[in-house]
């Protein structure tokens, strides 16, 4: 399968201004980043605050343009202004605060917003809105007002507003950061459904390790550079390196790491709770068996 997003050697800088608005220096947010996202992948981008991960995400649908280097979405250069709406239709984007991305006063009107902008026929809009709301399991709330909904529900409405456009890729910029644990779970379930059942490529920007662990591939960004790029298991087994860039590791990995440090011979890549629990259970029962 081909790459849906291809970022090549992108550099992005913010000017630093003094009090009179003169440029004093520049802060480099992205420093020569190259990243390809194959179609159908669930990619997680990890990094602590200020690492440049959100800036990178905004390059994926032409919200920001690289100062040097290029970003191509399905073969279209994001610098090509004539294709910008095709690009944004191909790569949808969901932001952190659900309150600030819902435009309309009624759920279904909001889901229809993008299609109305694109000038789709009213009947087709209706069909695709219903479909999108059913996908995120918000169909029964279609006539509610957004402020009556919980955070997780609002974020699902925002996702419905994007998938109604039928994008091939969705970039999510910390979609769970403002939600409670229940809402976070709802969103992760929705993300996995979109990726597995609907074949939508997902780029999840996050700083929650547990969320990144569920992806197919994890990219760790630090100081505007890609530090690691591998499958979750390989990434999280590097406990010291992750900690050195201000990131945490999932609890399972941490447990294994501590056990290993205290002298037990355990593998360090048991990322998922089930396999970790199973391994520990086997180990403990074998231990009991030995003693008998």
């Amino acid at each position: 399968m081909g790459d849906i997003i291809k970022a090549e050697n992108i550099i992005f800088e913010y000017p630093v201004l003094d009090e009179d608005g003169n440029e004093v220096s520049r802060t480099r947010v992205l420093d020569d980043v190259s990243l390809c996202v194959p179609e159908g992948q669930f990619l997680a981008v990890l990094g602590h605050n200020g690492s440049g991960k959100s800036t990178l995400a905004k390059h994926f649908n032409g919200i920001l343009l690289p100062m040097s280097g290029s970003v191509t979405v399905d073969g279209m250069d994001t610098k090509d202004e004539s294709r910008i709406y095709d690009i944004r239709q191909t790569v949808g984007m969901v932001f952190q605060n659900p309150d600030n991305q819902i435009v309309a006063t009624i759920v279904e009107e909001d889901a229809a917003f993008a299609l109305e902008n694109l000038g789709v026929e009213p009947k087709e809009i209706r069909r695709r809105v219903d479909e999108a709301l059913k996908t995120v399991d918000m169909y029964e709330y279609r006539e509610h007002s957004p402020h009556q909904l919980s955070g997780g529900q609002k974020q699902r409405v925002a996702i419905a507003g994007i998938i109604a456009m039928r994008p091939r890729c969705i970039v999510m910029d910390e979609p769970t950061a403002m939600l409670d644990p229940k809402g976070r779970k709802e969103i992760m379930k929705t993300i996995k459904l979109l990726n597995r059942e609907h074949g939508i490529t997902v780029v999840l920007i996050t700083h929650y390790m547990e969320e990144a662990a569920q992806a197919d591939r994890v990219v760790v960004i630090d100081k505007g550079k890609i530090l690691l790029d591998d499958v979750p298991k390989k990434i999280f087994s590097q406990v010291e390196l992750l900690r050195s860039v201000g990131l945490d590791v999932p609890q399972t990995i941490e447990l294994m790491y501590e056990l290993k440090k205290s002298g037990l011979d355990v593998p360090d890549d048991l990322l998922y709770e089930e396999e970790c629990a199973e391994y520990l259970f086997d180990m403990l029962t074998a231990d009991v068996g030995d003693k008998k």
Partner: peptide
């Protein structure tokens, strides 16, 4: 933030807009 989200959803004013 709302302006950004609207841009991501291809908002470009009233020109060529339809209604559900």
């Amino acid at each position: 933030e709302l302006a950004l989200a609207m841009e991501c959803r291809c908002y470009r004013g009233g020109e060529g807009r339809t209604r559900m």
